[in-house]
Design a protein around this nucleic acid. Structure first.
Lengths: 216, 216
DNA sequence: CTATTTGAACTGACCGGTCAGTTTAGTTAG
DNA sequence: CTAACTAAACTGACCGGTCAGTTCAAATAG
């Protein structure tokens, strides 16, 4: 299964022709993201995905090596988008905490826009022998890297509680973003984006040392 | 997984017979928790569950109405255990923040002991039209209630940031517990329990007001 | 002209749920 | 003490149905 050509970072046309193909892939991404987010990877059939994308089953196997391959590429696709958004605000803010705030805001927006991707992620991420184990490990590292450097920046500009493990902190923020975003979607649609960001930012304000801060 | 269910109000034999049945149910809980946590509810067959429990398929349907029913009862079973543990330390600590710390510690212990339950939870919790929608809503409310009252206690004993929505805070802590616990299991087994608790507790320290503390 | 898509057919495996029959353990009668 | 009885507990083969994956000749469009 899976020719798994790997190279993902680039989204530009690899050949000269794939005008139709790219559009079809995009439709298949959207359709499968939706369906798999709702019912889980194992709960969705390839026929359903094809139908939802308005495409035949054969086309799915023309564009992807297998159902498994489709899902792996889907995960990469989503992370590409999320990572790009996080990076887009990373350095725009003068203040490190404000930057963190903006980044969490971007994460919340992403969760609101692609809730199905978030569901897919939390559904499959921690499965122990999983077909996408390596894919998840790599993608997770990428996202955690972005968060990690933002935390690093905070640690550089503020006095922080050194007794708190950087890695655990990254994970806690990362996880809180997903869960708070999903919970808002599923159980508490009335909660605002800013409320959610504020709740998650509490963890950062707890991380920076409480010292007589001359902030106005 | 110690039998030690102890979970419920009434565990005594309702009739005179069900000695075997209760033991069988317990075995089925353990087996299905493991398998479903690893491969997802839809990815596990009833035959597999029966085999793993050392029981025939028919026995599964003798003890449970359906695969779906088995999973619903499994979710209840796990939440009963978790809730009991959280409540067990709720009022033991004199200080509200120390109580919160103990509660998060209990949560981390639970995640370490029943990682498969945690995986099952995050896998199925946010599915939108799900067979266990109502079950999840109820169980989620129970757990959030425990956390909420612990937060309330903190708010009573400490000055807190009133601009932070109580509900979002509950969710953030709840989610962080699951994600940090699972991540430790899957990707960072070297992280200690206390590191994880400390990272999550940062959110509480960010919640209590940094007020012009007349110190130093 | 050729990359892409179609749609249908086919297969080999699997799955949830059922049910008629068997075993186990508690109870009663002799 | 034990043989007969009974209902709960359990078994596993079986059924109707579904699914992922493959293939391919024909149609379509850049």
């Amino acid at each position: 299964m899976s020719s798994s050509e790997a190279g993902q970072a680039a989204v530009q046309p690899k050949k000269l022709r794939p005008a139709r193909t790219n559009a079809t892939k995009q439709k298949l991404f959207e359709a499968s993201m939706e369906l798999i987010g709702e019912r889980g990877a194992a709960g969705v059939t390839v026929d359903e995905i094809a139908a939802a994308a308005g495409v035949s089953k054969g086309t799915v196997y023309y564009n992807f090596g297998s159902k498994s391959d489709l899902i792996a590429q889907l995960l990469r696709h989503g992370v590409d988008i999320l990572e790009a958004r996080l990076l887009s605000v990373q350095d725009e803010s003068a203040d490190a905490l404000a930057g963190m705030d903006a980044m969490i805001g971007q994460a919340m927006d992403f969760m609101a826009e692609y809730p199905s991707f978030a569901r897919l992620w939390v559904s499959e991420n921690w499965r122990t022998p999983s077909e996408w184990q390596d894919t998840f490990a790599e993608l997770r590292a990428r996202l955690l890297g972005v968060i990690g450097s933002a935390i690093e920046r905070v640690a550089a500009e503020y006095p922080v509680d050194a007794s708190i493990s950087r890695g655990s902190l990254e994970t806690a923020i990362f996880g809180a973003c997903f869960v708070v975003g999903l919970d808002r979607q599923t159980y508490n649609p009335e909660r605002t984006r800013d409320q959610s960001v504020a709740a998650i930012m509490a963890i950062m304000r707890g991380y920076v040392q409480k010292q007589p801060d001359p902030q106005g």
